[in-house]
Computed example of a mutant assay.
Amino acid sequence: MGSRRQPDTRGRRPAGGAAVSGARPGEAGAPGNGLGQRGVHGERALGVPLPAPEARRGAVGERGAHPAPAGAPPDGAAVRAWVSRLVDTPPWERRACWVHGDLYARHLLVDEHHTVRGVLDWGDVHLGDPAIDLTLAFTFLPPEARGTFREAYGDIDEATWDRARFRAFHYGVALMLYGQSQGDESITRVGRDALRYGAA
């Protein structure tokens, strides 16, 4: 969870699907999303160690402490309470798995029924903590769909689930700041929703 390049917000649209820009699949999209992530994370990987927990915590804590733009989250106190609770969540100490690395709304392809059909931009794929991708359950799916997502994905321990939520706040702030700097209201809204849904 170290420093990374800015999110890709180009919203490319290959044939057969539409890149998402702030839309949500609702509960109907949760099973496919969970199954898709399980397929990636289940691929056998070499025993490559992850960065030291202290380094990851420091990088995420620095981003999480960045002041959010005024009026961004509907309940700033709830966001701060969650961040304070989650900052010391145990790190991933099992074998690293393949992760997409930049999984958010504009990197999903959905059909007219808001069913997820594909994933864009695999330029950040690497061996890491599955919570990096599971963050999508908090930044993209509504709270009522999380149970369906977890059932489709399979076993997710609570520490991994908590790290995914923490990263949602980290990513939400990053997207909002980037969207504001580029004058892109749709990506700012995606970031704002990440904070709102992460705190729900």
Rank of each mutant, 00 (worst) to 15 (best):
G172V: 02
A200F: 09
V110C: 07
F166A: 07
W122R: 10
D157N: 01
L103E: 04
Y171C: 05
A137T: 10
G179Y: 00
V116Q: 01
T115Q: 15
V190G: 14
V125P: 15
D157A: 00
L103S: 05
D102A: 09
I132D: 12
R189G: 14
T148D: 08
G172Y: 03
G118A: 06
D133Y: 06
W161V: 08
D193A: 14
D184W: 04
A199C: 11
H114R: 14
D121T: 02
P143A: 03
F149P: 05
E158R: 13
D155P: 15
D129L: 07
E151L: 14
R165N: 01
L109D: 07
A145N: 07
Q180A: 12
F169I: 02
R106H: 13
D133G: 03
G154P: 14
V110F: 11
Y153M: 05
A131M: 03
V119A: 04
V116S: 01
L177S: 03
F138A: 01
A164S: 11
D124K: 13
L195E: 00
Y178N: 11
Q180T: 08
A152V: 05
H100C: 09
W122E: 14
E151H: 13
G191M: 00
A194F: 12
V99H: 07
G123M: 04
H107C: 04
G154E: 06
L195K: 00
R106V: 14
V110L: 12
D124F: 14
G198V: 01
D193W: 03
C97F: 12
G147S: 09
A168I: 01
D162W: 08
F138H: 00
E151M: 12
G123T: 11
